[in-house]
Design a protein around this nucleic acid. Structure first.
Lengths: 238, 238
DNA sequence: GGATGTTGTAATCGAATGATTACTTAAAAC
DNA sequence: GTTTTAAGTAATCATTCGATTACAACATCC
């Protein structure tokens, strides 16, 4: 996870000749692309599609606004590519869990699962994927990026992609993890609840509100400390 | 449900004297307020807070943009009041179900519940409230209005209200309906999944996509036909 | 060492938008 | 019937934002 996002204006920035022209470090377009997408994910995740500006993305990526626009053409394209990237990360995370489980590499993790839920492959995979999902909260904005796409259905292109993406996830859970439609539904529902709790920033009032505490503990279980830590870290980052 | 939203520009509109000045029908401010809030709910539900304009709300309410702004002060206040109204409707719908159940007025409806889920008060109330929740899909945008608030946590005032509102709903389900924290969580999770499926407009591809069909049937059950009908009606309305 | 392509920015433009101001007119009060 | 108040709009303003244009500087190739 290359979470650098170098702001070249700091010390040692390559000052250009005589005029004070702060230019970003020159790096290959492909790498810059990935940095912009990472920055865009964070911005879109926090403020949504309509609420974000290309300039905010540019600032977060440490470059100028016109460069962002020129590299992606339009704000919509930028959003769609960030969405694809986020969805790809989610699908990959799930597939890695499934592959590791089937390869018998998770005997350690299996000890910590709730045995009351069941010992079949679908039941255990459901729990393992839920943990993998919660782990993604750490990775800056992946989940909220998806959530923002889900409520931006008004934009035709985004709505279409969001539908496709959601169905992709459903099919993965059902066909590759082998969950029944009903279990898949419940799995997705838990994920949407987690997204919502993150969206309303419930972890920020964890210590001040008893109800929030109960709901968060009940929903996140063993992953709560990690989420609380991530919440605090993000608040410090602004 | 007074779903009038009269556009006075039609026939019989009160033409003002000599100059062609299309003025909306004069009605008391309190009533106009409610019409604006209803219109705002629809607009915000579809496009989100940042994606909506006061002019879109004004057009939907059949009045001029300055009047909207003058009546509510700012767009943010308008959003917050529409949010309060939507949340109030949801809480009222749940409380009505609980009251009717406790008064023994739902013997008919109880026959149609899934008996496998359980016959205790919490189990039956959970199912009845889920039906009441799905019923709200019909009422133009209540659910998506809430959903949009949940992802607008970046706006401090909206985030705070959304947190409070969500916790209110949780407490109602837990304390007034008597669900355990875990059952409450599952109930809310199902609701968030429903919101998401509506948000990505999955009903619109029900007939073209087998996976969408399965997921929708599995999630909405007996309420699916009603939701599909509402979806078609909303598409016709544009 | 000049030509060329790549990486990047400054400046700016037009459209959109929330808000303000100054009116107009219908209805109520007296 | 005149005054007053409440309901509503047209016009406009200052910002903001996505996009475009034109240009600057660095690297690479011959």
């Amino acid at each position: 996870m290359s979470s650098v996002a170098k702001k070249t204006v700091g010390t040692g920035a390559p000052e250009t000749g005589s005029t004070s022209q702060a230019t970003a470090e020159r790096i290959p377009a492909a790498q810059r692309r990935e940095l912009i997408l990472e920055a865009a994910t964070g911005v879109f995740a926090e403020r949504g599609y309509a609420g974000s500006t290309t300039d905010q993305v540019a600032k977060a990526a440490g470059i100028s606004q016109p460069y962002v626009v020129r590299m992606f053409g339009t704000k919509e394209t930028l959003f769609l590519e960030a969405l694809d990237r986020a969805q790809g990360k989610l699908l990959r995370a799930f597939r890695e869990v499934i592959a590791a489980y089937d390869a018998g590499e998770l005997t350690e993790e299996l000890q910590h699962l709730d045995p009351a839920v069941g010992n079949g492959r679908p039941e255990q995979l459901k729990q393992l994927m839920a943990i993998a999902y919660a782990d993604l909260v750490e990775d800056r904005g992946i989940l909220m990026m998806l959530m923002q796409a889900f409520v931006a259905g008004h934009e035709p292109a985004i709505g279409a992609r969001a539908r496709e993406g959601f169905l992709d996830i459903y099919r993965l859970v059902r066909d590759e993890a082998g969950l029944s439609p009903e279990t898949s539904r419940d799995f997705l529902a838990q994920g949407m609840l987690m997204n919502t709790l993150i969206g309303i920033r419930l972890p920020e009032v964890y210590e001040q509100d008893e109800t929030a505490e109960e709901l968060l503990e009940c929903t996140l279980r063993s992953k709560l400390p990690m989420v609380l830590k991530a919440s605090k870290a993000q608040r410090r980052a602004g």
